[in-house]
Amino acid sequence: MNHGKTQPSRATDAGSTGSTGSACGAPCWVSLTSHGLEAAQRFYGAVLGWQWRPAGSGDHFRIALADSAPVAGIAVLPALRQTGVAWTPYFAVPDADQAAARARERGGTAGVGPLRLPPGRVALLSDRHGATFGIWEGELFGRWEPRRRAAPAFITLHTRDAFDAAMFYGGVLDWASDRPGSCEVEYEADEVLLRSQGHVVARIESGESDTAPDPSVRPHWQVTFLVDDVPECARAARRHGGGVLEEGEHEAVLRDPDGARFTVISAAGPRLAG
């Protein structure tokens, strides 16, 4: 059963569309670092209804498909094990080396890369408060092409100071710059909205602690997937070795068998993005 069938876009292109040269700092992908491809495919296939294909980059990667379109990835690499098991958002950049250097200049760290991963180049970084994110230089995948109205997932940064974080990411990713296609930044009470082509594509919210012992309340990027049936996704997570950390009628925070957290929200319920 396709419990997690994504709703916002009905595109069926399973290939790449466009390049990061014109995306300029927009979210362009989410990927899971995992201990095992087969187990992760079974779990997310059961919970979110995804199908799979090889990524064309060896035996360590898989692409998740919904309605035949790429929506997410799974990676199992020795170089990524130090990052732990987690869902990570990736942002499109025209030059991965330059973006990684900017992150280091602003107090962030580079955990992996930049390294070549056909059809592009990738790096895993941390911002100056410890939240992990990725950058991607190269061809963009299907539904994540930033010019489309909605993506199959939504991302939120929970951090200590939303405005300080926006300054960091803006400097690294050329937000609110005069570069063509640059994302717009909108400041509200205690959060920051990121817009691409006029549509909200990410949020940054204040309140998380840098030193909290629980990783869920330390600065982190939360990845949320739109699904048809939140309660059924929660039941499927329990049946297949995962867990339910928080559950409501329209939203739930789930954990996969390796401990990676992700959120599901009802496509028919309150929307995250504007």
Rank of each mutant, 00 (worst) to 15 (best):
S16I: 11
T6M: 04
A162G: 10
C24N: 15
H199D: 13
L117C: 11
E247A: 07
A165T: 12
G111V: 09
T12D: 14
L115D: 11
P257Q: 00
E38G: 13
S126H: 14
G45Y: 02
R143V: 01
S216Q: 09
A11E: 14
E205S: 10
R218H: 11
H250I: 06
E249V: 05
E184N: 14
V71D: 00
T17N: 06
D228F: 05
T224F: 09
R148C: 06
Y90P: 12
T159I: 05
G15I: 00
L124W: 05
D95T: 03
G15H: 01
Y90M: 05
L245G: 11
D258M: 01
I204N: 03
A189V: 13
E186P: 03
W221E: 08
V227R: 00
G73W: 06
D97K: 07
S19Y: 04
P89Q: 03
P180Q: 02
F43L: 04
L65W: 01
P270C: 01
S177V: 02
C183H: 03
L140R: 05
F225R: 04
A202L: 04
W50L: 02
R148E: 15
A11S: 11
G170K: 07
A101M: 09
T263C: 08
P257H: 00
V93Y: 05
P146I: 01
A100T: 15
S206T: 06
L117G: 08
F61I: 04
R62V: 13
T156V: 12
F225W: 10
T263P: 13
A236E: 10
Q98T: 14
P78A: 05
G107A: 05
L157W: 07
W136N: 08
V253H: 08
A123Q: 08
T224K: 03
T88V: 14
Y187N: 15
C28E: 11
T263Y: 06
A268S: 08
G142Y: 01
D190Q: 12
A103M: 03
S31M: 11
S196Q: 08
E208T: 15
S126Q: 15
A150K: 14
G15N: 04
V227A: 00
L117P: 09
R203V: 09
E232D: 12
P70Y: 00
P270Q: 03
K5Q: 13
A14D: 13
R121V: 06
T109W: 07
G274L: 09
P27S: 01
A23P: 14
A99P: 06
S9C: 13
A96H: 04
Q98E: 14
H129P: 11
P8G: 07
R42C: 13
A79R: 12
G130M: 02
V185S: 05
V244Q: 00
R148D: 09
C183M: 03
E139R: 15
R148F: 13
G242H: 07
W29E: 04
D13S: 11
S206H: 06
V112H: 10
A267K: 01
E251D: 09
W175Q: 07
T83A: 11
D178E: 14
A260W: 00
H3K: 12
G134K: 02
H60M: 10
G241N: 07
G56T: 06
S177F: 00
I265P: 04
A55R: 04
F262E: 03
P8T: 03
P114H: 02
R128C: 13
E105D: 15
S16W: 07
R149S: 14
V112P: 12
S182A: 05
R104N: 08
G4L: 00
D97G: 13
S216V: 10
V47M: 02
T33S: 13
R235F: 06
